[in-house]
Amino acid sequence: MTQEFPAGNYSFIPAVFQYSSGAAASPGYEVERVRFDKMPPLAEGFALIKQYIEDAGRPLTSFCACELRSPAAFTEDGFLKFNQHYVKTLAEWGLFDGTTNPVARSNVCPEIDPPAEPSFFAFSFTRPSGNPGPSFVIAGGAESRGGPGTYPERTVRYRDVSPDGLKEKVRFTVASMEARLGAFGFGWKETTAAQAYTVHDFHPVIADELVRRGVMRSGLIWHFARPPVIDLEYEMDCRRVLREMVI
């Protein structure tokens, strides 16, 4: 089930207060992705994003997705506190109404040379376009089931990084991506990029769990990083974006 966000010219998959599960540009619009060459800390990054979007002649409500990098995986309580801080700016920009958040997000933790504090790696926003094709960003998702309960209770093969454990984690995460794509009526064949985040060797399952399912139609970008909550081991996101910039 998707929901329209007319103020940003996109639809989204409702999820939790800190992010949506994905955002897709409305007809007549496309998603532009902008990556930072040097990752700015959260407050500085928001200021740079604001300037870039306004310089493009777009409202701040066109902000539809972001990719964050954090120093290390959070505890469950620490992740909640971070998210409560993060959404304050989204509320100021007219994106978060206190309950519903249309902005898709990934937030991972580089294992080597992490930032000193949570920082922006990239962001996306919508802009007018004559391209009739779809344009979207699917939020990061790891091997954690939705619904009530703690992360240990919801994590697939909790603390199991054996070959079989990793295979099941990857399979679950890929299926989660497929469900989010399907909510918009898309599949892997529409994607222009897929990203994986893990510090574990998942090569033994790439052929069956990724290639044969169409995940790697445009290759796969592997970031040597951990998901944002302690004891999650594998995360993915994907997108279809025809305009990408580095600033």
Rank of each mutant, 00 (worst) to 15 (best):
W222K: 05
P204C: 07
S144F: 00
F120G: 10
L95N: 02
R69A: 15
P227K: 04
P114F: 09
A139V: 06
N101I: 05
Y158E: 04
H85G: 15
T173P: 11
A56S: 15
L90F: 12
A193S: 11
P71M: 04
G219Y: 08
P115N: 11
I206A: 15
E153L: 05
P132I: 01
E111N: 09
L68Q: 00
S70C: 12
A7E: 08
R226G: 00
G94S: 12
S62H: 13
W93N: 06
E233T: 15
E168I: 01
K88W: 03
A7H: 07
H85P: 05
M39G: 03
F17W: 04
D113N: 15
P118N: 14
P6W: 05
G57S: 02
G219M: 10
F172I: 00
E76Y: 09
F123S: 06
D97Q: 12
H200L: 11
S11T: 13
V31I: 12
G182L: 08
I230D: 10
R105N: 06
S218V: 05
F120T: 00
R145Q: 11
F12Y: 15
V229T: 03
T89A: 11
D208P: 02
M1D: 14
W222L: 13
P114M: 09
P71D: 07
P114I: 08
D37M: 03
P228E: 09
E244R: 11
S162A: 06
E244F: 02
A23C: 15
E143C: 09
F17C: 10
Q195N: 12
V137K: 06
F224V: 06
